[in-house]
């Protein structure tokens, strides 16, 4: 959609045009459901999050300003709805991430010596994608949500901090640990000598 088309489309939504609403839902719900499924393990929860996101969007459309694209705006809304839903599904107490982090000797050397990786030689794209998705799924939720927000959904540190209600430093610390833990879980499958 060109900028002019998108402006006209937003005006149609803001004036309550039913056809525009149907187009909005049909065009964006598939992508939004894919986002929600990354955060939520249960299909029903993912669908609920998408529905709740649209309800929030319908309420807020009057305040939508031309600065952002509708797709970007809806993306933020569904990420937020998925996080809210995840909060209600948290396993308590959350398991520790320590087991998934690298282990160190007292002198600061690693217990297991890192070696080179050859992902593309060992696995095809679909295999890599499902390996990574499985690895992210193994992370405790408070780490999983940070790596999803920053590395997959491409929010910046400040946006992620605001959505999670934590400091930017906490986002950075969790992201680093989440990446380290994910690296450990991918390592056995991606080592050149695997």
């Amino acid at each position: 959609m060109s900028d002019a088309d998108e402006r006209a489309f937003v005006e149609a939504l803001q004036s309550g045009d039913d056809a525009a609403y149907e187009k909005l839902v049909r065009e964006h719900s598939g992508r939004m459901l894919a986002v929600a499924r990354r955060f939520l393990r249960e299909e029903d929860d993912a669908r609920d999050a998408v529905q709740e996101a649209f309800v929030s969007a319908f309420r807020a459309i009057g305040n939508f300003e031309g600065g952002a694209r509708i797709s970007t705006w809806l993306h933020r809304i569904v990420v937020n709805a998925a996080l809210m839903k995840l909060r209600t599904r948290r396993r308590k107490p959350e398991e520790s991430i320590d087991e998934l982090l690298p282990h160190w000797k007292d002198d600061g050397h690693p217990e297991a010596t890192p070696g080179p990786w050859s992902p593309e030689r060992l696995l095809d794209r679909d295999q890599l994608r499902s390996l990574v998705a499985g690895g992210i799924d193994r992370l405790p939720d408070s780490y999983r949500e940070v790596i999803l927000l920053r590395d997959i959904e491409e929010l910046d540190t400040a946006e992620a901090a605001e959505m999670l209600g934590i400091s930017t430093n906490a986002v950075k610390t969790r992201l680093h640990r989440a990446r380290q833990a994910l690296r450990e879980t991918l390592d056995p499958a991606l080592r050149e000598d695997a």
Binding site: P119, E154, L186
Partner: peptide
């Protein structure tokens, strides 16, 4: 070994992008 660790850390970020829309 730390060079391998650094490379695989960067690869982890790159591979995460495969899960994006």
């Amino acid at each position: 070994p730390c060079v391998h660790y650094l490379d695989s850390y960067k690869e982890t970020i790159r591979l995460g992008c495969l899960c994006r829309d």
